[in-house]
């Protein structure tokens, strides 16, 4: 009885750990968003800068994207702890089944795409999937999706690029350098550009999808707000200021741009990561 009560208390604490970071990010956004008047026109811009830290090479702005991604990471930590809390050999809870399903699915995905020797990449792939998908989905809560900031995705893509290069160098430095001069030495610049294009194309693919969705959503929302004010502006008092026409269409758009596109891009990023790393590794290593 005592242990059961304690387990329930831990459950509640972990659920709070899942919910609180996102709620905090939302509160921060609500508190800092300026009430832009309609007359200013549509503003398409990147993440809000909360404050700036002076750093050696370049000042570091702490933006909404950074804060939201930290919130998402904390939430994922909470989800992991919640799923594996009180885990038993004989499963008796749905959340343990969910945890095992996640682990099993990711393991199978990695095994089928990369082979048995890369099974250690399963947590990495799961991390990419979770972080990317949940970052994109956080726009459903009205947050600025971290994945629509190019810096975030570029960081992930550069990490993947480092891994790819690491595995290519495992086949020997000379083979790596010689790879640039194949099939003929004239191709060297093209090969180098192709090598550098990998992280850039990976990051721009993901970032472009999410960001274009955000831009289109913003434009449509603004258009609907103006339309609502034009058509329903005669209503008395504050009733006239409520954008009634914003109900409906943005939800359908968000179904595609936020949910489908976000999950799809997360999956594609993970798939490309797996394929690039698996093909970069030498055959016999």
């Amino acid at each position: 009885m005592q242990s059961k009560r304690r387990a329930r208390a831990v459950d509640i604490l972990l659920i709070l750990l899942i919910v609180l970071p996102l709620a905090g990010a939302m509160t921060l956004k609500v508190l800092t968003t300026p009430d832009a008047p309609l007359s200013e026109g549509v503003q398409i811009s990147g993440a809000q800068i909360y404050f700036t830290i002076p750093m050696p090479i370049q000042d570091l702005p702490i933006t909404a994207a950074q804060v939201n991604s930290w919130a998402v990471i904390l939430s994922i930590l909470g989800v992991c702890l919640y799923l594996t809390h009180g885990i038993k050999v004989i499963p008796d809870s749905k959340r343990q089944l969910a945890a095992e399903w996640i682990v099993d699915t990711v393991n199978r995905l990695v095994r089928s795409n990369m082979g048995e020797k890369f099974i250690g990449f399963a947590p990495f792939v799961a991390g990419i999937l979770a972080l990317s998908a949940l970052s994109s989905l956080s726009s459903l809560l009205g947050l600025f999706a971290p994945t629509s900031d190019v810096n975030i995705i570029l960081g992930w893509a550069i990490l993947v690029f480092i891994l790819i290069t690491h595995y290519k160098l495992k086949g020997g430095l000379w083979a790596y350098i010689k790879g640039f001069f194949s099939p003929i030495p004239v191709f060297a610049p093209l090969n180098i550009i192709g090598e550098i294009a990998t992280p850039i194309s990976m990051s721009f693919r993901h970032y472009g999808n999410v960001m274009s969705g955000m831009v289109i959503s913003t434009l449509i929302a603004f258009a609907l707000r103006s339309l609502s004010q034009t058509v329903l502006g005669w209503l008395p008092g504050t009733l006239g200021k409520i954008p009634f026409l914003q109900v409906g269409l943005p939800a359908v758009l968000s179904l595609y741009f936020d949910i489908f596109s976000g999950c799809m891009q997360a999956f594609i990023f993970a798939m490309l990561t797996m394929m690039f790393i698996a093909t970069a590794a030498p055959e016999d290593a």
Binding site: I44, S45, G46, Q48, L60, I128, N151, G155, W156
Partner: peptide, 22 residues
């Protein structure tokens, strides 16, 4: 409240997000 440009590359932010993934 200031905002970033819609596409702006910042070295430290990239490092931070790289570490976030790790």
């Amino acid at each position: 409240m200031q905002s970033l440009d819609i596409i702006s590359v910042n070295f430290w932010q990239i490092i931070i997000s790289l570490v976030n993934l790790l």
